[in-house]
Design a protein around this nucleic acid. Structure first.
Lengths: 343, 343
DNA sequence: CAACCTCACGCAAAGGATTGCGCACAGGTG
DNA sequence: CACCTGTGCGCAATCCTTTGCGTGAGGTTG
């Protein structure tokens, strides 16, 4: 275990533990003479003193630990967020605890409780659903919490995410510029803010371009490839013409492309499709996916900074912030060709 | 903060805090009458008591926190490991702290120190380099630590990884079966166990098939796409015939395919190539990558179990364990065609 | 020279849970 | 009825650091 305690350092330096504490604590520099401080620091170094963060936390009720809650770390959009947050946090002397709820709201609740018992200083939450009681509770208590990527309906918690509206608008306009009129949106689940807002933005963008919006939105069961596949099945079954699809995200797009491919439809020949997120390797598909790039690393980093600010200031500093996104045009979007309906 | 303390529960139940502690602690069930225990538990529930893990940890020097150290969470091979470990850990009432060293050995050292100051109970390390002093230190102190994916030369720390030998052997034999003789291995960095061992396995497998091994191994600077690109440049510059390459991992393979493609060489027409790891989306490339599938989620889970065992038993339970891997044959390997040298 | 101020440091409590030790009481035995 | 055993529980120390308060020495001012 940790053999050397503050007392040991104090004894070595010939001072009282309290003095040693002050000497080592930058915030209390003024309260101890430079000479003594120097001596204490030297002793600490000599003995290899490492403060016991638990004991400190017990006294100060500050643990310098922040928790990041993700729905599924295996989904490639989260690692960059984790990384961005981790860099900022450790840069500020904080430690990151990570928890993966496996998309379970019950797990989310219990994990949040457990983390709080561990005395963490704040949360970064990437699992927000549109109605999310545990988060409302956090918000009500004023516990430092910032939402990332997704937000929820009610709470006034600070949020940092990508500019979904802009991303969808860019996609729609790009497709419209290519001559597409019958564009469908395979929306994300409506219990997520991203699902709702992208769908909303889609309708708005379509209307602005004078394109038909009736029955142009299908909701997917999740942000997964399987959900995309299922949505594509429904899409084909409708026997309704479409020449382009705006997918809720890259994974959904992948599922759609797979299913449509099985039905004999190829992109960009038979239809155009856009994704969202620009996950790793999306440029290596064939054809490479046209999608919206979201600065996830920045998102994680910003969320962490917001959280740190809140912890330092004692109250939330900003509310919502949207990071700019960018449409990256690749191979899955092309000029609209004479319509071909499904088999 | 946490309003309700053990004292509050004790008062509510009309007992001494010490008794309340025992009543709530499963390990001390025998020391308190069932009736009292019942009453205390009821009070605890009624008040919504959540034990303060810091205070408990301070006394017991057990924090129920384990740390996972990865070199770069953004590398798609790590998220599954994280996930596997996280599931097992939280299942056992543990919390996972994650730290990303950004491939820096100095960061690794400081993070390990910082984590220990936080009183964590053990480490799962995925950053091991072949010579890794911080790990030797951990090993020497007998601090619960298990290595995952990579191990190091010296330490006797428990290790769980994929069966690199088997993976490489399967790749080589597959290529040999397709008629390839001039196979090169683009090895991983020799300061990683995976780099060394895959290279070793490659030579052994080649020899066993009676294939030439002289100058057949080139070391890459890292496990990245860029390193693969650089290696491919060197490969072409040698102007030495080859018809197949066994890449150190998928990322390297991707880099190689990119560079060789720029030189006018296509797979599987002009050369065959195998990867290692079977990252997400590798089946969606064109052509889809032939590679070795490694059970990363299991790996993470097993590593976590080993760690938990060690913590519970007070000493390491097993030493090395290799998980079986599997060659998944896809589109980047084909029959050897008449050789074409580079431009 | 006395009264007062400042600065540096010591003292001890606090933070919340665990646990070894010992006491008291209930039940059993001679 | 007296004594003994065992069980259930209370007491207080402990884990380690931080911090409000107090004290003494040394210096300044009237």
């Amino acid at each position: 275990m940790q053999r050397v305690r503050l007392v040991d350092v104090a004894r070595e330096a010939g001072v009282h533990p309290g003095t040693a504490s002050r000497a080592l604590n930058p915030d209390a520099q003024g309260e101890v003479s430079p000479a003594t401080a120097q001596r204490v620091r030297r002793s600490a170094e000599k003995l290899g003193y490492v403060p016991n963060t638990l004991a400190r936390g017990l006294r100060t009720s500050r643990s310098y630990v922040a928790a990041l809650v993700v729905p599924d770390i295996t989904n490639p959009l989260f690692p960059p967020i984790v990384r961005g947050a981790e860099q900022v946090l450790t840069g500020a002397g904080f430690t990151l605890v990570l928890t993966d709820t496996n998309n379970g709201v019950e797990v989310e609740r219990s994990q949040i409780a457990s983390m709080r018992a561990h005395g963490i200083d704040g949360f970064i939450i990437a699992t927000a659903t549109w109605h999310d009681p545990p988060l409302d509770e956090l918000a009500a208590e004023g516990f430092p919490t910032v939402l990332v990527n997704r937000r929820c309906a009610t709470s006034e918690l600070p949020f940092v995410g990508g500019d979904d509206h802009q991303g969808v608008r860019l996609s729609v306009e790009h497709l419209a510029d290519l001559g597409h009129r019958d564009i469908v949106h395979l929306a994300g689940p409506s219990d997520t803010s991203t699902g709702r807002e992208r769908a909303h933005a889609f309708r708005a963008a379509m209307r602005d371009r004078g394109l038909p919006v009736r029955n142009s939105v299908l909701e997917c069961a999740g942000y997964t490839e399987e959900a995309g596949t299922a949505a594509a099945v429904r899409l084909l079954r409708r026997r309704r013409a479409f020449s382009a699809v705006v997918a809720a995200n890259d994974l959904v797009a992948l599922g759609v492309m797979g299913e449509l491919g099985r039905a004999g439809l190829a992109t960009p020949r038979d239809y155009s499709i856009t994704g969202f997120n620009d996950l790793a390797f999306m440029d290596k598909l064939s054809p490479p996916l046209t999608t919206v790039r979201v600065p996830f690393t920045d998102m994680g980093a910003q969320a962490a900074r917001r959280l740190l600010d809140w912890i330092a200031e004692g109250r939330p500093t900003t509310t919502q912030s949207m990071l700019p996104v960018e449409l990256v045009v690749r191979g899955t979007t092309g000029r609209r060709e004479p319509l071909r309906t499904s088999t």
